[in-house]
Simulated scan of single mutants.
Amino acid sequence: MAFTHDAQASLRCAVDLANSGLDEEALGTLEALDAFCAKWDVTGRRDHTAAELAEVQALRPRLVRMWHLAAAGDETAFVGEVNVLLRESEALPQLVTHDGWDWHIHAHRPDAPLARRLTVEAAMAFVDVVRAGELDRFSICAADDCDAVVIDLSRNRSRKFCEAGCGNRIAAQAYRARKG
Protein backbone atom coordinates (compact mmCIF):
# COMPACT_ATOMS: atom_id res chain seq x y z
CA MET A 1 0.00 0.00 0.00
CA ALA A 2 1.36 3.38 -0.94
CA PHE A 3 0.52 6.12 1.52
CA THR A 4 -0.09 9.69 0.42
CA HIS A 5 2.91 11.99 0.27
CA ASP A 6 1.77 13.98 3.31
CA ALA A 7 1.16 10.83 5.37
CA GLN A 8 4.64 9.53 4.50
CA ALA A 9 6.20 12.88 5.38
CA SER A 10 4.32 12.96 8.69
CA LEU A 11 5.41 9.42 9.53
CA ARG A 12 9.04 10.19 8.75
CA CYS A 13 8.84 13.40 10.78
CA ALA A 14 7.34 11.46 13.71
CA VAL A 15 10.19 8.93 13.49
CA ASP A 16 12.76 11.72 13.49
CA LEU A 17 11.09 13.44 16.42
CA ALA A 18 10.73 10.22 18.44
CA ASN A 19 14.35 9.25 17.80
CA SER A 20 15.61 12.74 18.66
CA GLY A 21 15.02 11.78 22.28
CA LEU A 22 17.68 9.06 22.09
CA ASP A 23 20.37 11.73 22.00
CA GLU A 24 19.89 14.56 24.50
CA GLU A 25 21.49 17.07 22.15
CA ALA A 26 19.49 16.18 19.02
CA LEU A 27 16.65 18.53 19.96
CA GLY A 28 18.09 20.34 22.95
CA THR A 29 18.07 23.95 21.75
CA LEU A 30 15.75 26.38 20.02
CA GLU A 31 18.18 26.38 17.09
CA ALA A 32 17.88 22.59 16.84
CA LEU A 33 14.08 22.92 16.89
CA ASP A 34 14.30 25.54 14.13
CA ALA A 35 16.43 23.16 12.04
CA PHE A 36 14.01 20.30 12.70
CA CYS A 37 11.04 22.43 11.57
CA ALA A 38 12.93 23.55 8.45
CA LYS A 39 13.93 19.97 7.62
CA TRP A 40 10.31 18.79 7.77
CA ASP A 41 8.72 21.92 6.23
CA VAL A 42 6.65 22.53 9.36
CA THR A 43 4.36 25.46 8.64
CA GLY A 44 2.26 27.66 10.89
CA ARG A 45 2.82 29.41 14.19
CA ARG A 46 6.19 29.30 15.92
CA ASP A 47 6.77 30.89 19.32
CA HIS A 48 10.55 30.29 19.48
CA THR A 49 10.41 29.89 23.27
CA ALA A 50 11.80 27.44 25.79
CA ALA A 51 8.20 26.45 26.58
CA GLU A 52 7.57 25.52 22.94
CA LEU A 53 10.74 23.42 22.90
CA ALA A 54 9.71 21.67 26.12
CA GLU A 55 6.24 20.87 24.68
CA VAL A 56 7.80 19.32 21.58
CA GLN A 57 10.28 17.34 23.68
CA ALA A 58 7.39 16.10 25.85
CA LEU A 59 5.73 14.64 22.74
CA ARG A 60 8.64 12.27 22.06
CA PRO A 61 7.82 9.60 24.71
CA ARG A 62 4.22 9.50 23.51
CA LEU A 63 5.38 8.82 19.96
CA VAL A 64 7.79 6.13 21.12
CA ARG A 65 4.91 4.52 23.05
CA MET A 66 2.88 4.46 19.82
CA TRP A 67 5.68 2.58 18.07
CA HIS A 68 5.92 0.04 20.86
CA LEU A 69 2.17 -0.58 20.76
CA ALA A 70 2.26 -1.02 16.98
CA ALA A 71 5.37 -3.21 17.04
CA ALA A 72 3.65 -5.42 19.62
CA GLY A 73 0.67 -5.72 17.28
CA ASP A 74 -1.71 -4.19 19.83
CA GLU A 75 -4.03 -2.50 17.35
CA THR A 76 -6.76 -1.84 19.92
CA ALA A 77 -4.42 0.03 22.27
CA PHE A 78 -2.76 1.81 19.34
CA VAL A 79 -6.11 3.04 18.01
CA GLY A 80 -7.13 4.11 21.51
CA GLU A 81 -3.97 6.20 21.82
CA VAL A 82 -4.45 7.71 18.35
CA ASN A 83 -7.95 8.77 19.37
CA VAL A 84 -6.61 10.29 22.59
CA LEU A 85 -4.01 12.27 20.60
CA LEU A 86 -6.67 13.54 18.19
CA ARG A 87 -9.13 14.38 20.96
CA GLU A 88 -6.59 16.15 23.18
CA SER A 89 -5.30 18.14 20.20
CA GLU A 90 -8.80 19.16 19.10
CA ALA A 91 -8.21 17.88 15.57
CA LEU A 92 -10.27 19.59 12.88
CA PRO A 93 -9.50 18.01 9.49
CA GLN A 94 -9.53 20.26 6.45
CA LEU A 95 -8.07 20.19 2.94
CA VAL A 96 -5.28 22.67 2.23
CA THR A 97 -2.69 23.40 -0.42
CA HIS A 98 0.47 25.44 0.17
CA ASP A 99 4.20 25.71 -0.48
CA GLY A 100 4.13 23.53 -3.59
CA TRP A 101 2.18 20.71 -1.93
CA ASP A 102 -0.96 19.53 -3.69
CA TRP A 103 -4.19 19.06 -1.74
CA HIS A 104 -3.60 17.36 1.59
CA ILE A 105 -5.14 17.29 5.04
CA HIS A 106 -4.24 19.50 7.96
CA ALA A 107 -6.22 18.70 11.06
CA HIS A 108 -5.29 21.79 13.02
CA ARG A 109 -5.38 25.53 12.73
CA PRO A 110 -2.16 27.14 11.45
CA ASP A 111 -2.00 29.23 14.63
CA ALA A 112 -2.15 26.15 16.90
CA PRO A 113 0.96 25.58 19.03
CA LEU A 114 3.77 23.67 17.34
CA ALA A 115 3.58 20.59 19.58
CA ARG A 116 -0.16 20.31 18.92
CA ARG A 117 0.38 20.53 15.16
CA LEU A 118 3.12 17.88 15.27
CA THR A 119 0.86 15.65 17.39
CA VAL A 120 -2.06 15.96 15.01
CA GLU A 121 0.06 15.42 11.90
CA ALA A 122 1.46 12.21 13.39
CA ALA A 123 -1.95 11.03 14.59
CA MET A 124 -3.54 11.62 11.19
CA ALA A 125 -0.77 9.61 9.53
CA PHE A 126 -1.33 6.86 12.12
CA VAL A 127 -5.02 6.86 11.11
CA ASP A 128 -4.01 6.17 7.51
CA VAL A 129 -1.77 3.29 8.58
CA VAL A 130 -4.50 1.69 10.70
CA ARG A 131 -7.16 2.11 8.01
CA ALA A 132 -4.84 0.45 5.49
CA GLY A 133 -4.22 -2.47 7.84
CA GLU A 134 -0.48 -1.74 7.76
CA LEU A 135 0.39 -1.50 11.46
CA ASP A 136 3.23 -3.97 10.90
CA ARG A 137 5.15 -1.18 9.17
CA PHE A 138 6.03 0.15 12.65
CA SER A 139 8.99 -1.47 14.39
CA ILE A 140 11.93 -0.92 16.67
CA CYS A 141 15.46 -1.06 15.21
CA ALA A 142 16.63 -4.67 14.88
CA ALA A 143 20.09 -3.86 16.29
CA ASP A 144 20.36 -5.27 19.81
CA ASP A 145 21.91 -2.10 21.15
CA CYS A 146 19.48 0.40 19.55
CA ASP A 147 16.03 1.50 20.70
CA ALA A 148 15.23 3.77 17.74
CA VAL A 149 11.81 3.57 16.11
CA VAL A 150 11.49 2.60 12.45
CA ILE A 151 8.78 3.12 9.85
CA ASP A 152 9.05 0.75 6.89
CA LEU A 153 7.62 2.51 3.85
CA SER A 154 9.44 0.23 1.39
CA ARG A 155 7.44 -1.81 -1.12
CA ASN A 156 9.01 -5.09 -0.07
CA ARG A 157 8.74 -4.41 3.69
CA SER A 158 12.45 -5.05 4.19
CA ARG A 159 13.45 -2.18 6.47
CA LYS A 160 14.72 -3.50 9.80
CA PHE A 161 17.16 -0.87 10.99
CA CYS A 162 16.95 2.81 11.91
CA GLU A 163 18.42 5.79 10.07
CA ALA A 164 21.40 6.01 12.44
CA GLY A 165 23.48 3.53 10.46
CA CYS A 166 22.75 0.40 12.47
CA GLY A 167 22.16 -1.65 9.31
CA ASN A 168 25.59 -0.78 7.94
CA ARG A 169 27.24 -1.37 11.32
CA ILE A 170 25.62 -4.81 11.69
CA ALA A 171 26.53 -5.76 8.12
CA ALA A 172 30.16 -4.71 8.69
CA GLN A 173 30.30 -6.74 11.93
CA ALA A 174 28.93 -9.79 10.12
CA TYR A 175 31.44 -9.34 7.30
CA ARG A 176 34.35 -9.09 9.75
CA ALA A 177 33.10 -12.18 11.59
CA ARG A 178 32.96 -14.17 8.33
CA LYS A 179 36.45 -13.03 7.31
CA GLY A 180 37.63 -13.79 10.84
Rank of each mutant, 00 (worst) to 15 (best):
M1Q: 06
A2V: 10
Q8M: 11
A9R: 13
V15S: 04
N19F: 10
S20F: 05
S20E: 04
S20Y: 07
L22K: 03
A26L: 08
T29W: 07
T29R: 06
E31Q: 12
D34C: 04
D34F: 01
A35S: 10
F36G: 05
C37Y: 09
A38Q: 12
G44D: 06
H48P: 01
H48L: 07
A51K: 11
E52C: 04
V56C: 10
Q57G: 03
R60M: 14
M66Q: 14
H68I: 00
H68M: 03
A70G: 10
A72V: 06
A72D: 15
A72Q: 12
A72P: 02
G73S: 09
E75P: 00
E75Y: 00
A77L: 10
G80S: 09
G80P: 10
E81P: 00
V82E: 02
N83C: 09
L85F: 15
L85E: 08
S89V: 03
Q94S: 12
L95A: 13
V96G: 03
V96W: 08
D99T: 14
D99N: 14
D99F: 07
W103M: 10
W103N: 11
H104T: 08
H104E: 12
I105A: 10
H106Y: 04
A107E: 07
A107L: 07
R109S: 14
A112H: 13
P113L: 10
R116F: 01
R116K: 08
R117Y: 03
T119N: 13
T119L: 10
V120R: 00
A122I: 01
A123R: 01
V127Q: 08
V127L: 02
V130Y: 00
R131E: 13
R131V: 07
G133N: 09
L135Q: 11
R137F: 08
F138N: 09
I140E: 11
D147M: 07
V149C: 15
V150W: 01
R155A: 15
S158C: 08
F161A: 02
C162F: 11
R169G: 01
A171Q: 13
Y175F: 15
R176N: 09
A177H: 10
